[in-house]
Amino acid sequence: VTTYKLVINGKTLKGETTTKAVDAETSEKAFKQYANDNGVDGVWTYDDATKTFTVTEMV
């Protein structure tokens, strides 16, 4: 189990959250659901070296 981080650069929501998951794909699903639940829709990137997802909304 690995800890993954999500950085949110939204128009109205900014911040970070973490989750523990067995792999990046599992954490990505959880993070995308979290973003969707909070009305964040944007461009996703992933940095495997830091286990960090970033979602950026276009303004």
Score class of each variant (00 low, 15 high):
Thr18Gly: 04
Asn38Val: 14
Lys29Asn: 07
Asn9Trp: 13
Thr17Lys: 11
Asp41Met: 13
Thr17Met: 15
Asp41Phe: 15
Asn36Lys: 15
Phe53Asp: 00
Lys14Asp: 05
Ala24Pro: 10
Thr50Pro: 00
Glu28Ile: 10
Lys29Thr: 07
Ser27Val: 14
Ile8His: 02
Asp41Thr: 14
Thr45Tyr: 08
Val7Pro: 01
Asp47Gly: 01
Asp23Glu: 03
Val1Arg: 09
Tyr4Pro: 02
Glu28Cys: 15
Glu28Arg: 12
Tyr34Cys: 05
Thr2Met: 11
Thr52Val: 05
Thr12Ser: 10
Lys32Phe: 05
Lys29Cys: 07
Lys20Gln: 14
Thr50Cys: 04
Trp44Met: 03
Lys20Asn: 12
Val1Ala: 10
Lys11Ser: 10
Ala35Gln: 01
Glu28Phe: 15
Val1Asn: 09
Gly10Ser: 12
Thr2Ile: 14
Thr56Ile: 07
Val55His: 01
Lys51Arg: 10
Val1Phe: 14
Asp23Phe: 04
Thr3Lys: 07
Thr26Arg: 06
Thr50Glu: 05
Thr50Lys: 06
Lys51Gly: 04
Leu13Thr: 09
Val22Asp: 06
Asn9Gly: 04
Gln33Gly: 05
Asp41Pro: 03
Glu16Ser: 12
Lys29Ile: 11
Tyr4Trp: 08
Glu25Asn: 09
Lys51Ala: 05
Lys32Asn: 03
Glu25Pro: 09
Glu16Met: 12
Leu13Arg: 07
Lys5Gly: 02
Asn38Arg: 14
Asn38Pro: 01
Val22Asn: 09
Thr45Ile: 07
Lys20Trp: 12
Lys11Thr: 12
Lys51Glu: 03
Gly10Ala: 08
Val59Ala: 13
Thr2Trp: 13
Asp23Trp: 03
Val40Arg: 01
Val1Cys: 15
Lys5Glu: 03
Ala30Met: 14
Thr26Val: 07
Thr18Phe: 15
Glu25Tyr: 12
Ala24Met: 13
Gln33Asp: 07
Leu13Gly: 08
Gly15Ala: 13
Gly42Pro: 00
Thr3Cys: 13
Thr52Ala: 03
Thr50His: 05
Ala30Asp: 06
Leu13Ala: 07
Ala49Lys: 11
Phe31Ala: 01
Asp47Tyr: 03
Lys32Ser: 03
Asp23Val: 03
Gly42Val: 02
Val43Trp: 09
Lys32Glu: 03
Val55Tyr: 02
Thr12Tyr: 14
Gly42Asn: 00
Asp47Gln: 04
Thr12Trp: 13
Asn36Leu: 15
Ala49Ile: 10
Tyr34Ile: 06
